[in-house]
Nucleic acid binder design. Structure first.
Length: 415
DNA sequence: TCTGGGGTCCTAGGACCC
DNA sequence: TCTGGGGTCCTAGGACCC
């Protein structure tokens, strides 16, 4: 018996920009960009001029002089994204959300209740349009990967089903970059080998594909063409790491610059971890120099950390090591901290082993338990009065942040 | 005035153990 | 004393995604 096409991939179109056009009718049909210094999202009208996310605002204005910048309604994005995914959830419990505006759903178990997958997709599209005022595209296929490709093909504001008997036919003339995991670098490698379409890729011997792209991408491609693509929906993914970063423009690579920034980043990450009773054993610091080359340094500890001060100390030590290693680098453009190897935090932590070399233990440093309790007290104040109500004195940043905090929060994955 | 911020996964090499 | 192989953990860099 042939497997049916029951996997849906639903994807809100140009999500942030569409929300802005929904909220303010005078923006409809016009090129709109959310952001200012940098474009966070662009409407289809703006995309037609070549404007896209992560583009400097100045460049966007050059490409599209009539571009309308709006600051963004980030709380609305969260609410409307949740609402759209909830509509999918009205039809099946098997929903796998992969970002604020995108989710897979398997409707195999509810066809007797709601009709065919196409019936369900039509209903979802209609309801998202009626109830939320937003366009959403849906792809339907036998596997997640194919459904995802189908929704991309369906955009904007469309529906596309891939007949299981005609999958290769569907893929044949599509450009290779529709494949999940094929980005600019892989696309260029394939182009150099004379491969531009999925059909051409399918004709390449498996060995040459692996040699060119490595095992992971090679396996993915052969799974796709041999119809062994996984289709299981995973409803509750836990994050494997938590991080934060800050672009600095151009700043001297000096202690007085990086110390307060690292404390701020550590504060953000550690409070998120504590909120979920998590800690992490591996701390990674990343330093990007003026020319955008970046180096990372990591330390894995015998026990997890979730205290702000300890995380900040470790990150500082790693960044100092980078500075010692690259004495000729005088300017940095970005700092980042990431914590991985996440584990459940014991209810009461008596002491935090620092784990890094003894140099991390400065004379007079407070014990881990004391730091952790101070953090918990601060978390409680923030819970009542807001995040900005209290903080480490040294954490106050003099430079305005490039991106609103509300946007950063949107991007955070549930831990 | 060269590019945001939050993530995932893969690869390759080295240390270390059995 | 020399040699080999496999497994695991860790680090650094990089591609990719939204």
């Amino acid at each position: 018996m042939e497997t049916q096409a029951t996997i849906l991939h639903a994807d809100l179109d140009a999500f942030y920009a569409s929300v802005e056009q929904m909220l303010d009718p005078s923006l409809r049909g016009k090129p709109v960009a959310v952001g200012g210094g940098v474009v966070l999202a662009a409407s289809y009208e703006a995309k037609a001029f070549g404007v896209h996310g992560a583009m400097p605002g100045r460049r966007a204005r050059e490409l599209c002089p009539d571009l309308i910048f709006v600051p963004g309604h980030f709380r609305e994005y969260q609410r409307l994204g949740n609402a759209a995914i909830a509509i999918l959830g009205d039809y099946t419990p098997l929903v796998e959300r992969i970002s604020i505006d995108e989710a897979f759903a398997d409707v195999a178990g509810c066809l007797h209740l709601f009709g065919s997958p196409v019936d369900i997709a039509l209903k979802v599209r209609e309801r998202v349009r009626e109830e939320l005022g937003l366009p959403i595209s849906i792809g339907i296929a036998r596997t997640k990967h194919l459904a995802k490709i189908a929704s991309q093909v369906a955009k904007p504001d469309g529906l596309r089903i891939v007949d299981p008997a005609r999958e290769l036919e569907f893929l044949h003339d599509l450009p290779v970059e529709v494949i999940w995991g094929v980005g600019p670098v892989t696309k260029a490698k394939l182009a150099a080998a004379g491969v531009f379409k999925v059909g051409e890729l399918a004709q390449m011997p498996g060995q040459s594909v692996q040699k060119l792209l490595g095992h992971a991408v090679g396996d993915k491609l052969s799974a796709l063409s041999w119809n062994r693509d996984p289709r299981a929906i995973v409803t509750n993914q836990r994050a494997r790491s938590a991080g934060a970063q800050s672009a600095l423009g151009h700043k001297p690579f000096e202690e007085r610059v990086f110390r307060p920034v690292l404390r701020h980043l550590a504060d953000r990450i550690a409070s998120r971890l504590r909120d979920k009773s998590l800690s992490g054993r591996t701390v990674t610091a990343r330093v990007r120099f003026a020319d955008l080359r970046a180096v990372t340094r990591a330390a894995t500890l015998p026990a997890g950390v979730s205290a702000t001060a300890i995380l900040a100390d470790i990150a500082e030590e790693l960044v100092r090591a980078v500075r010692r290693e690259f004495p000729q680098e005088r300017t940095i453009s970005l700092l980042a901290i990431s914590v991985s190897h996440l584990e459940r935090q014991p209810a009461l932590q008596l002491e935090f082993p620092l784990g890094l070399a003894d140099e991390a233990r400065r004379p007079g440093a407070r014990r881990g338990a004391a730091r952790w309790q101070a953090d918990r007290a601060m978390d409680a104040v923030r819970g009542r009065f807001g995040w900005e109500a209290i903080g480490y004195g040294s954490v106050v940043l003099e430079s305005p942040r490039a991106v609103p905090d509300a946007f950063r929060e949107l991007a955070e994955r549930d831990l």
